[in-house]
Design a binder for these strands. Structure first.
Length: 414
DNA sequence: TCTGGGGTCCTAGGACCC
DNA sequence: TCTGGGGTCCTAGGACCC
Protein backbone atom coordinates (compact mmCIF):
# COMPACT_ATOMS: atom_id res chain seq x y z
CA UNK A 1 0.00 0.00 0.00
CA UNK A 2 0.97 3.62 -0.41
CA UNK A 3 3.09 2.75 -3.41
CA UNK A 4 1.24 5.04 -5.79
CA UNK A 5 1.21 8.80 -5.84
CA UNK A 6 -2.41 9.84 -5.36
CA UNK A 7 -2.14 13.16 -3.50
CA UNK A 8 -2.56 16.30 -5.59
CA UNK A 9 -1.64 19.82 -4.60
CA UNK A 10 -3.20 22.42 -6.88
CA UNK A 11 -2.15 26.05 -6.65
CA UNK A 12 -3.42 28.93 -8.79
CA UNK A 13 -0.46 30.90 -10.15
CA UNK A 14 -0.02 34.51 -8.97
CA UNK A 15 -3.73 34.31 -8.27
CA UNK A 16 -4.88 37.92 -7.74
CA UNK A 17 -2.64 39.20 -10.52
CA UNK A 18 -3.82 36.51 -12.92
CA UNK A 19 -7.44 37.46 -12.23
CA UNK A 20 -6.66 41.09 -13.01
CA UNK A 21 -5.02 40.08 -16.29
CA UNK A 22 -8.03 37.96 -17.08
CA UNK A 23 -10.44 40.85 -16.44
CA UNK A 24 -8.38 43.41 -18.37
CA UNK A 25 -6.63 41.97 -21.45
CA UNK A 26 -4.46 45.07 -21.76
CA UNK A 27 -2.65 43.91 -18.60
CA UNK A 28 -1.69 40.53 -20.02
CA UNK A 29 2.00 39.90 -20.51
CA UNK A 30 2.83 42.99 -18.46
CA UNK A 31 4.29 43.45 -14.99
CA UNK A 32 1.42 44.32 -12.67
CA UNK A 33 0.87 44.40 -8.93
CA UNK A 34 -2.38 44.23 -7.00
CA UNK A 35 -2.43 46.70 -4.13
CA UNK A 36 -1.04 50.16 -3.59
CA UNK A 37 0.92 50.97 -0.46
CA UNK A 38 1.82 47.33 -0.23
CA UNK A 39 1.95 44.65 -2.93
CA UNK A 40 -0.71 42.01 -2.29
CA UNK A 41 0.22 40.00 -5.38
CA UNK A 42 2.57 40.36 -8.35
CA UNK A 43 2.26 38.93 -11.86
CA UNK A 44 5.03 36.65 -13.14
CA UNK A 45 6.23 39.46 -15.38
CA UNK A 46 6.65 41.59 -12.24
CA UNK A 47 8.25 38.76 -10.25
CA UNK A 48 11.07 38.69 -12.78
CA UNK A 49 12.04 42.11 -11.46
CA UNK A 50 12.08 40.85 -7.89
CA UNK A 51 8.65 42.23 -6.99
CA UNK A 52 6.73 40.00 -4.56
CA UNK A 53 3.79 39.99 -2.18
CA UNK A 54 4.25 41.90 1.06
CA UNK A 55 6.72 44.31 -0.50
CA UNK A 56 6.10 48.04 -0.13
CA UNK A 57 4.74 49.76 -3.21
CA UNK A 58 7.65 52.17 -3.26
CA UNK A 59 10.24 49.39 -3.28
CA UNK A 60 8.32 47.59 -6.02
CA UNK A 61 8.33 50.70 -8.23
CA UNK A 62 12.05 51.07 -7.69
CA UNK A 63 12.67 47.51 -8.86
CA UNK A 64 10.28 47.77 -11.78
CA UNK A 65 9.57 51.33 -13.01
CA UNK A 66 6.99 50.18 -15.56
CA UNK A 67 5.00 48.29 -12.92
CA UNK A 68 1.25 48.90 -13.18
CA UNK A 69 -0.73 48.96 -9.93
CA UNK A 70 -4.30 47.78 -10.14
CA UNK A 71 -7.09 47.90 -7.59
CA UNK A 72 -8.35 44.59 -6.33
CA UNK A 73 -11.52 42.94 -7.60
CA UNK A 74 -12.01 41.05 -4.35
CA UNK A 75 -15.40 39.60 -5.22
CA UNK A 76 -13.90 38.11 -8.36
CA UNK A 77 -11.06 36.51 -6.38
CA UNK A 78 -13.63 34.93 -4.11
CA UNK A 79 -15.78 33.70 -6.99
CA UNK A 80 -12.93 32.31 -9.11
CA UNK A 81 -11.18 30.70 -6.12
CA UNK A 82 -14.41 28.89 -5.28
CA UNK A 83 -14.89 27.84 -8.89
CA UNK A 84 -11.40 26.35 -9.11
CA UNK A 85 -11.91 24.32 -5.93
CA UNK A 86 -15.21 23.14 -7.35
CA UNK A 87 -13.44 21.79 -10.43
CA UNK A 88 -11.19 19.70 -8.16
CA UNK A 89 -14.25 18.56 -6.26
CA UNK A 90 -15.65 17.11 -9.49
CA UNK A 91 -12.93 14.43 -9.31
CA UNK A 92 -12.94 13.49 -5.63
CA UNK A 93 -14.78 14.36 -2.43
CA UNK A 94 -11.45 14.29 -0.55
CA UNK A 95 -10.50 17.93 -0.98
CA UNK A 96 -8.72 19.99 1.66
CA UNK A 97 -8.72 23.68 0.87
CA UNK A 98 -5.88 25.48 2.62
CA UNK A 99 -6.30 29.00 1.30
CA UNK A 100 -8.25 30.95 -1.28
CA UNK A 101 -6.04 29.68 -4.10
CA UNK A 102 -4.76 26.22 -3.17
CA UNK A 103 -5.99 22.82 -2.12
CA UNK A 104 -4.93 19.24 -1.57
CA UNK A 105 -6.92 16.34 -2.98
CA UNK A 106 -6.65 12.57 -2.73
CA UNK A 107 -7.66 10.66 -5.86
CA UNK A 108 -7.02 7.18 -4.48
CA UNK A 109 -9.98 5.07 -5.51
CA UNK A 110 -11.21 7.25 -8.37
CA UNK A 111 -9.03 5.69 -11.06
CA UNK A 112 -11.85 3.61 -12.50
CA UNK A 113 -13.79 6.85 -13.05
CA UNK A 114 -11.19 9.37 -14.18
CA UNK A 115 -8.00 7.46 -14.87
CA UNK A 116 -4.68 7.67 -13.02
CA UNK A 117 -3.73 10.68 -10.87
CA UNK A 118 -1.65 12.26 -13.60
CA UNK A 119 -4.66 12.24 -15.94
CA UNK A 120 -6.78 13.86 -13.25
CA UNK A 121 -4.13 16.53 -12.73
CA UNK A 122 -4.09 17.26 -16.48
CA UNK A 123 -7.87 17.42 -16.57
CA UNK A 124 -7.98 19.84 -13.65
CA UNK A 125 -5.41 22.09 -15.27
CA UNK A 126 -7.11 22.21 -18.64
CA UNK A 127 -10.57 22.71 -17.17
CA UNK A 128 -9.42 25.60 -14.95
CA UNK A 129 -7.68 27.12 -17.96
CA UNK A 130 -10.64 26.70 -20.32
CA UNK A 131 -13.57 27.35 -18.01
CA UNK A 132 -12.05 30.03 -15.78
CA UNK A 133 -9.18 31.38 -17.88
CA UNK A 134 -6.62 30.91 -15.13
CA UNK A 135 -3.25 29.13 -14.90
CA UNK A 136 -2.94 26.54 -12.14
CA UNK A 137 0.03 24.36 -11.20
CA UNK A 138 -0.37 20.85 -9.84
CA UNK A 139 2.02 18.58 -7.98
CA UNK A 140 1.31 14.87 -7.59
CA UNK A 141 3.05 12.68 -5.03
CA UNK A 142 2.57 10.02 -2.38
CA UNK A 143 2.42 12.54 0.49
CA UNK A 144 0.97 16.01 0.97
CA UNK A 145 4.26 17.65 1.67
CA UNK A 146 5.92 16.26 -1.41
CA UNK A 147 2.91 17.14 -3.58
CA UNK A 148 3.12 20.71 -2.33
CA UNK A 149 6.82 20.92 -3.10
CA UNK A 150 6.16 19.44 -6.53
CA UNK A 151 3.59 22.11 -7.37
CA UNK A 152 6.06 24.83 -6.33
CA UNK A 153 8.73 23.33 -8.56
CA UNK A 154 6.20 22.98 -11.40
CA UNK A 155 5.29 26.68 -11.35
CA UNK A 156 4.37 28.59 -13.34
CA UNK A 157 1.54 26.83 -15.12
CA UNK A 158 3.06 23.38 -14.80
CA UNK A 159 2.50 19.79 -13.73
CA UNK A 160 4.97 17.60 -11.89
CA UNK A 161 4.45 13.99 -10.84
CA UNK A 162 6.92 12.59 -8.32
CA UNK A 163 7.50 8.91 -9.03
CA UNK A 164 7.40 7.06 -5.68
CA UNK A 165 10.63 5.22 -6.42
CA UNK A 166 12.49 8.49 -7.06
CA UNK A 167 11.11 10.52 -4.16
CA UNK A 168 14.30 11.08 -2.21
CA UNK A 169 16.34 11.62 -5.34
CA UNK A 170 13.95 14.45 -6.26
CA UNK A 171 13.63 15.86 -2.76
CA UNK A 172 17.25 15.84 -1.64
CA UNK A 173 18.57 18.05 -4.42
CA UNK A 174 16.18 20.89 -3.51
CA UNK A 175 16.94 23.87 -1.26
CA UNK A 176 15.71 23.68 2.34
CA UNK A 177 13.47 26.72 2.03
CA UNK A 178 11.06 24.75 -0.17
CA UNK A 179 10.09 22.76 2.91
CA UNK A 180 6.95 23.77 4.76
CA UNK A 181 8.04 25.50 7.94
CA UNK A 182 11.45 26.74 6.78
CA UNK A 183 11.32 30.51 6.55
CA UNK A 184 14.07 33.13 6.46
CA UNK A 185 15.19 32.58 10.07
CA UNK A 186 15.41 28.80 9.94
CA UNK A 187 17.04 28.97 6.52
CA UNK A 188 19.74 31.25 7.92
CA UNK A 189 20.25 29.05 10.99
CA UNK A 190 20.63 25.99 8.83
CA UNK A 191 22.95 27.80 6.43
CA UNK A 192 25.15 28.76 9.38
CA UNK A 193 25.51 25.03 10.05
CA UNK A 194 26.42 24.43 6.42
CA UNK A 195 23.02 23.02 5.46
CA UNK A 196 21.39 24.43 2.35
CA UNK A 197 19.80 21.41 0.66
CA UNK A 198 17.13 19.01 1.88
CA UNK A 199 19.62 16.18 1.30
CA UNK A 200 22.13 17.74 3.67
CA UNK A 201 19.37 18.22 6.23
CA UNK A 202 18.32 14.59 5.85
CA UNK A 203 21.90 13.48 6.51
CA UNK A 204 22.10 15.34 9.82
CA UNK A 205 21.80 13.42 13.08
CA UNK A 206 18.41 14.23 14.60
CA UNK A 207 20.09 15.48 17.76
CA UNK A 208 22.08 18.19 16.04
CA UNK A 209 19.15 19.26 13.85
CA UNK A 210 17.00 19.70 16.96
CA UNK A 211 19.85 21.61 18.55
CA UNK A 212 19.57 24.17 15.78
CA UNK A 213 15.84 24.54 15.22
CA UNK A 214 14.29 23.14 18.42
CA UNK A 215 12.70 19.79 19.12
CA UNK A 216 9.31 20.03 17.43
CA UNK A 217 10.56 21.67 14.24
CA UNK A 218 13.57 19.35 14.15
CA UNK A 219 11.40 16.26 14.34
CA UNK A 220 9.06 17.62 11.72
CA UNK A 221 11.79 18.60 9.27
CA UNK A 222 13.54 15.26 9.76
CA UNK A 223 10.32 13.46 8.86
CA UNK A 224 9.71 15.70 5.86
CA UNK A 225 13.25 15.29 4.55
CA UNK A 226 12.80 11.52 4.46
CA UNK A 227 9.23 11.90 3.20
CA UNK A 228 7.95 10.09 6.30
CA UNK A 229 5.08 12.42 7.06
CA UNK A 230 1.87 10.60 6.19
CA UNK A 231 -0.56 13.37 7.01
CA UNK A 232 -4.11 12.69 5.89
CA UNK A 233 -6.41 14.95 3.91
CA UNK A 234 -8.71 16.89 6.24
CA UNK A 235 -11.91 18.03 4.62
CA UNK A 236 -13.19 19.82 7.74
CA UNK A 237 -11.56 22.78 9.39
CA UNK A 238 -12.49 24.57 12.59
CA UNK A 239 -10.91 27.91 13.45
CA UNK A 240 -8.97 28.10 16.72
CA UNK A 241 -8.95 31.89 16.89
CA UNK A 242 -10.62 34.93 15.38
CA UNK A 243 -8.82 38.24 15.07
CA UNK A 244 -8.55 41.57 13.31
CA UNK A 245 -5.86 44.22 12.98
CA UNK A 246 -5.32 47.67 11.58
CA UNK A 247 -2.10 49.34 10.52
CA UNK A 248 -2.25 52.97 11.56
CA UNK A 249 0.75 54.60 9.98
CA UNK A 250 2.12 56.53 12.94
CA UNK A 251 -0.30 57.58 15.64
CA UNK A 252 0.24 59.03 19.09
CA UNK A 253 -0.06 56.37 21.82
CA UNK A 254 -2.99 58.10 23.50
CA UNK A 255 -6.37 56.79 24.53
CA UNK A 256 -8.42 59.16 22.34
CA UNK A 257 -6.40 57.86 19.41
CA UNK A 258 -6.42 54.11 19.95
CA UNK A 259 -9.87 53.78 21.48
CA UNK A 260 -11.94 54.17 18.29
CA UNK A 261 -9.71 51.70 16.47
CA UNK A 262 -10.07 49.12 19.23
CA UNK A 263 -13.86 49.47 19.08
CA UNK A 264 -13.77 49.03 15.32
CA UNK A 265 -11.62 45.89 15.68
CA UNK A 266 -13.72 44.51 18.54
CA UNK A 267 -16.82 45.02 16.41
CA UNK A 268 -15.33 43.02 13.53
CA UNK A 269 -14.12 40.19 15.74
CA UNK A 270 -17.20 39.91 17.96
CA UNK A 271 -19.57 40.04 15.01
CA UNK A 272 -17.77 37.12 13.38
CA UNK A 273 -17.77 35.16 16.64
CA UNK A 274 -21.52 35.60 17.00
CA UNK A 275 -22.08 34.63 13.39
CA UNK A 276 -20.24 31.37 14.11
CA UNK A 277 -22.17 30.98 17.38
CA UNK A 278 -18.85 30.84 19.19
CA UNK A 279 -17.33 32.74 22.07
CA UNK A 280 -13.77 32.84 23.33
CA UNK A 281 -12.06 32.80 26.72
CA UNK A 282 -8.71 34.34 25.85
CA UNK A 283 -8.38 37.89 24.56
CA UNK A 284 -5.04 39.04 23.14
CA UNK A 285 -4.18 42.58 22.13
CA UNK A 286 -1.11 43.48 20.12
CA UNK A 287 0.53 46.89 19.89
CA UNK A 288 3.17 47.60 17.31
CA UNK A 289 5.42 50.58 17.81
CA UNK A 290 7.11 52.95 15.36
CA UNK A 291 10.10 50.63 14.82
CA UNK A 292 7.79 47.69 13.97
CA UNK A 293 8.61 45.80 17.16
CA UNK A 294 5.41 44.65 18.80
CA UNK A 295 4.22 43.46 22.19
CA UNK A 296 1.18 41.46 23.19
CA UNK A 297 -0.89 41.32 26.34
CA UNK A 298 -3.51 38.67 26.92
CA UNK A 299 -5.98 37.58 29.53
CA UNK A 300 -7.98 34.41 29.98
CA UNK A 301 -11.50 34.69 31.36
CA UNK A 302 -13.50 32.10 33.29
CA UNK A 303 -16.14 32.06 30.55
CA UNK A 304 -16.17 32.86 26.85
CA UNK A 305 -17.32 36.23 25.53
CA UNK A 306 -18.75 37.37 22.21
CA UNK A 307 -20.18 40.80 23.08
CA UNK A 308 -18.68 43.74 21.22
CA UNK A 309 -18.52 46.23 24.09
CA UNK A 310 -17.07 43.73 26.55
CA UNK A 311 -14.39 42.71 24.07
CA UNK A 312 -13.58 46.36 23.37
CA UNK A 313 -13.24 47.16 27.07
CA UNK A 314 -10.95 44.21 27.72
CA UNK A 315 -8.82 45.08 24.70
CA UNK A 316 -8.50 48.67 25.91
CA UNK A 317 -7.34 47.48 29.30
CA UNK A 318 -4.75 45.20 27.67
CA UNK A 319 -3.47 47.97 25.42
CA UNK A 320 -3.22 50.32 28.40
CA UNK A 321 -1.18 47.69 30.23
CA UNK A 322 1.13 47.19 27.25
CA UNK A 323 1.73 50.95 26.92
CA UNK A 324 2.25 51.28 30.66
CA UNK A 325 5.04 48.71 30.41
CA UNK A 326 6.66 50.64 27.53
CA UNK A 327 6.53 54.27 28.64
CA UNK A 328 9.25 55.21 26.15
CA UNK A 329 7.08 54.31 23.17
CA UNK A 330 5.01 57.31 22.13
CA UNK A 331 4.01 56.09 18.66
CA UNK A 332 1.72 53.21 17.73
CA UNK A 333 1.80 51.81 14.18
CA UNK A 334 -0.62 48.88 14.48
CA UNK A 335 -3.30 47.54 16.80
CA UNK A 336 -4.68 44.01 16.82
CA UNK A 337 -7.26 42.01 18.75
CA UNK A 338 -7.55 38.25 18.74
CA UNK A 339 -9.87 35.89 20.60
CA UNK A 340 -8.90 32.26 21.17
CA UNK A 341 -9.86 29.32 23.37
CA UNK A 342 -13.07 29.21 21.36
CA UNK A 343 -16.13 27.40 22.64
CA UNK A 344 -19.88 27.32 21.91
CA UNK A 345 -21.43 30.72 22.58
CA UNK A 346 -22.67 30.51 26.18
CA UNK A 347 -24.72 33.70 25.82
CA UNK A 348 -26.99 32.03 23.32
CA UNK A 349 -28.60 30.16 26.19
CA UNK A 350 -28.93 33.36 28.20
CA UNK A 351 -31.39 35.10 25.94
CA UNK A 352 -34.10 34.61 28.55
CA UNK A 353 -34.24 37.27 31.28
CA UNK A 354 -31.92 36.67 34.22
CA UNK A 355 -33.11 36.99 37.80
CA UNK A 356 -31.40 38.14 40.96
CA UNK A 357 -30.28 34.61 41.74
CA UNK A 358 -28.32 34.47 38.47
CA UNK A 359 -26.75 37.82 39.22
CA UNK A 360 -25.57 36.60 42.61
CA UNK A 361 -24.09 33.46 41.17
CA UNK A 362 -22.31 35.32 38.39
CA UNK A 363 -21.83 39.01 39.04
CA UNK A 364 -22.29 41.00 35.86
CA UNK A 365 -24.31 38.27 34.18
CA UNK A 366 -27.32 40.50 33.66
CA UNK A 367 -25.29 43.32 32.20
CA UNK A 368 -23.52 40.87 29.90
CA UNK A 369 -26.83 39.43 28.76
CA UNK A 370 -28.19 42.91 28.07
CA UNK A 371 -25.16 43.77 25.96
CA UNK A 372 -25.42 40.49 24.14
CA UNK A 373 -29.01 41.31 23.32
CA UNK A 374 -28.07 44.72 21.98
CA UNK A 375 -25.41 43.06 19.80
CA UNK A 376 -28.03 40.64 18.54
CA UNK A 377 -30.18 43.58 17.42
CA UNK A 378 -27.24 45.16 15.59
CA UNK A 379 -26.43 41.85 13.90
CA UNK A 380 -30.03 41.53 12.72
CA UNK A 381 -30.09 45.05 11.25
CA UNK A 382 -26.84 44.40 9.43
CA UNK A 383 -28.12 41.15 8.03
CA UNK A 384 -30.99 43.08 6.47
CA UNK A 385 -29.35 46.35 5.48
CA UNK A 386 -25.63 45.64 5.34
CA UNK A 387 -22.65 46.22 7.60
CA UNK A 388 -22.58 49.97 7.10
CA UNK A 389 -26.15 50.38 8.39
CA UNK A 390 -25.00 50.47 12.02
CA UNK A 391 -21.74 51.41 13.68
CA UNK A 392 -20.64 51.65 17.27
CA UNK A 393 -20.49 55.34 18.20
CA UNK A 394 -17.16 56.86 17.32
CA UNK A 395 -16.27 53.97 15.03
CA UNK A 396 -18.50 55.35 12.29
CA UNK A 397 -16.57 56.79 9.39
CA UNK A 398 -13.15 55.72 10.65
CA UNK A 399 -10.65 55.50 7.80
CA UNK A 400 -8.56 52.36 7.56
CA UNK A 401 -5.59 51.25 5.52
CA UNK A 402 -6.81 48.48 3.26
CA UNK A 403 -10.02 48.30 1.25
CA UNK A 404 -12.97 46.80 3.07
CA UNK A 405 -13.21 44.17 0.35
CA UNK A 406 -9.76 42.87 1.18
CA UNK A 407 -10.66 42.40 4.85
CA UNK A 408 -13.85 40.60 3.91
CA UNK A 409 -11.99 38.31 1.56
CA UNK A 410 -9.43 37.46 4.25
CA UNK A 411 -12.19 36.82 6.80
CA UNK A 412 -14.00 34.34 4.60
CA UNK A 413 -14.22 30.79 5.79
CA UNK A 414 -11.97 28.54 3.79
C1' DT B 1 14.47 46.76 4.73
C1' DC B 2 10.78 49.47 7.45
C1' DT B 3 5.27 46.01 4.85
C1' DG B 4 -1.37 44.30 5.03
C1' DG B 5 -4.49 41.23 7.22
C1' DG B 6 -5.97 36.63 8.16
C1' DG B 7 -4.29 32.69 10.65
C1' DT B 8 -1.32 28.21 13.05
C1' DC B 9 2.01 26.27 15.99
C1' DC B 10 6.09 26.14 19.20
C1' DT B 11 8.84 27.53 23.32
C1' DA B 12 10.02 28.96 27.85
C1' DG B 13 9.04 30.36 32.37
C1' DG B 14 5.99 30.75 36.28
C1' DA B 15 1.83 29.58 39.06
C1' DC B 16 -0.66 26.14 40.95
C1' DC B 17 -2.23 21.49 42.25
C1' DC B 18 -1.78 16.93 44.17
C1' DT C 1 26.14 7.06 39.82
C1' DC C 2 23.22 10.98 39.61
C1' DT C 3 19.15 13.55 40.87
C1' DG C 4 14.84 15.17 44.19
C1' DG C 5 8.11 15.85 41.34
C1' DG C 6 5.05 15.85 37.34
C1' DG C 7 1.12 17.68 35.01
C1' DT C 8 -1.58 21.47 33.51
C1' DC C 9 -2.70 26.05 32.60
C1' DC C 10 -1.48 30.73 31.53
C1' DT C 11 1.38 34.44 29.46
C1' DA C 12 4.56 36.53 26.13
C1' DG C 13 7.24 36.19 22.27
C1' DG C 14 8.39 34.50 17.82
C1' DA C 15 8.56 31.87 13.32
C1' DC C 16 5.90 30.73 9.65
C1' DC C 17 2.02 30.28 6.09
C1' DC C 18 -1.22 32.33 2.47
Amino acid sequence: MGATATILHADLDAFYASVEQLLDPSLRGRPIAVGGGVVLAASYEAKKFGVHGGMSGRKARELCPELRFVGGHFDEYQRLGEAAIKVIGDFTPLVERISIDEAFADVAGTEHLFGPPEAVARAIRSRVREELGLPISVGVARTKHLAKIASQVAKPDGLLVVDPVRELEFLHQLPVELMWGVGPVTKAELAAAGVTTIGQLAAMPGRSLEGIVGQAIGEKLGALAWNRDPRAIHTEHRARSVGAQSALGRKAAREEVYRPTLHYLADRVATRLRAKERSGRTVTARVRFADLRSVTRSTTLPAGISATTILAEIAEELVRAALRDHPGERIVSLLAISVSHLEPDAMLQLELPLGLADEKRRPGARLAAARRKADGAVDAIRRRFGREAVAYGTVAGLAHGVPEGFRELAEKEI
